[in-house]
């Protein structure tokens, strides 16, 4: 089979993520998806605070730096003003599901017609590896030194279950970057979410399981094995809602 695979033009250059970080793959998948759908020129990204903000260095589209947790609110405002543009937020789990949970859930609840990309690595990476809402039970972080306990912090938050209760949501999927097959599937999810958005169907979200080797204190390869094992066991991978929203 004849093929050429090269870095999309929409990638500006080297990224500044840590070695083995999943963000680098996600950013490339977004760039590929935008180019293949013909939306790289009209795309606008609402950028979160945290490691996500390093997307500024890598992604060559219009971007806005939002207050911590508020990227989905900013994205909603942009999309309402420019419904013809492809608008997405790029957020980590700390940003979107801890400080920004209200903005996240109400963007879905109000059926704001943008796409939310959540990169879930289960820690606050940029601040040095504190527990996030998605830290697994037993996982050690700088704020759960003996491992997260249900008694102290409850169970890890599953945003797809929360979104799944909202009937107007257009598209929901959870992907992962832990191997090539899942990376290719995740790209398909991102494209389907973008397509649902541009069809005016409503709110769409792709959550992506991603490693943080630095703060998990693991080698990159072992981090991927952890996702393949315990992380994806708690957070099942796959499409949750397809063909939903206003056109359903």
């Amino acid at each position: 089979m004849a093929m050429t695979k090269k870095i999309p033009d929409t990638i500006k250059g080297a990224n500044t993520f840590c070695p083995g970080c999943g963000h680098g793959v996600v950013v490339r998948l977004i760039a590929e998806a935008l180019e293949e759908l013909g939306h790289a020129d009209d795309a606008i990204c609402a950028v979160a605070v945290g490691c996500s903000c390093l997307v500024n260095v890598a992604l060559g589209i219009d971007k806005i730096g939002c207050p911590h947790g508020r990227a989905s609110a900013c994205a909603a405002g942009i999309k309402r003003v420019r419904p013809g543009n492809l608008v997405f937020s790029y957020q980590g789990d700390g940003d979107s599901l801890s400080i920004g949970l209200a903005e996240t859930v109400y963007s879905a609840q109000r059926n704001e017609k943008f796409t939310q990309i959540i990169v879930n690595n289960g820690v606050f990476g940029m601040t040095g590896g504190q527990a996030s809402p998605c830290t697994l039970i037993g996982q050690k972080t700088t704020t759960t030194v003996d491992g997260r306990s249900v008694n102290m912090s409850g169970v890890p938050l599953d945003i797809m279950k929360m979104f799944g209760q909202i009937e107007s949501v257009a598209y929901l999927a959870r992907g992962s970057v832990h191997d090539a097959q899942n990376i290719l599937n995740t790209k398909r999810y991102i494209k389907k979410a973008f397509e649902a958005q541009m069809a005016g169907a409503g709110f769409s979200c792709v959550e992506i399981l991603s490693p943080c080797p630095t703060n998990w204190h693991m080698e990159p390869v072992d981090s991927m094995e952890r996702i393949a094992g315990v992380v994806s066991a708690y957070y099942p991978i796959g499409e949750i809602v397809t063909g939903g929203g206003l056109n359903a």
């Binding site: 609402a46 806005i64 900013c74 994205a75 909603a76 309402r80 003003v81 903005e103």
Partner: peptide, 19 residues
């Protein structure tokens, strides 16, 4: 938009004005 809080409101305005 009647938002879920003043925080969500000001940030929608930030996005809209930035656009």
């Amino acid at each position: 938009a009647q938002t879920s809080s003043e925080i969500e409101g000001i940030n929608q305005v930030l996005g809209a004005a930035a656009a």
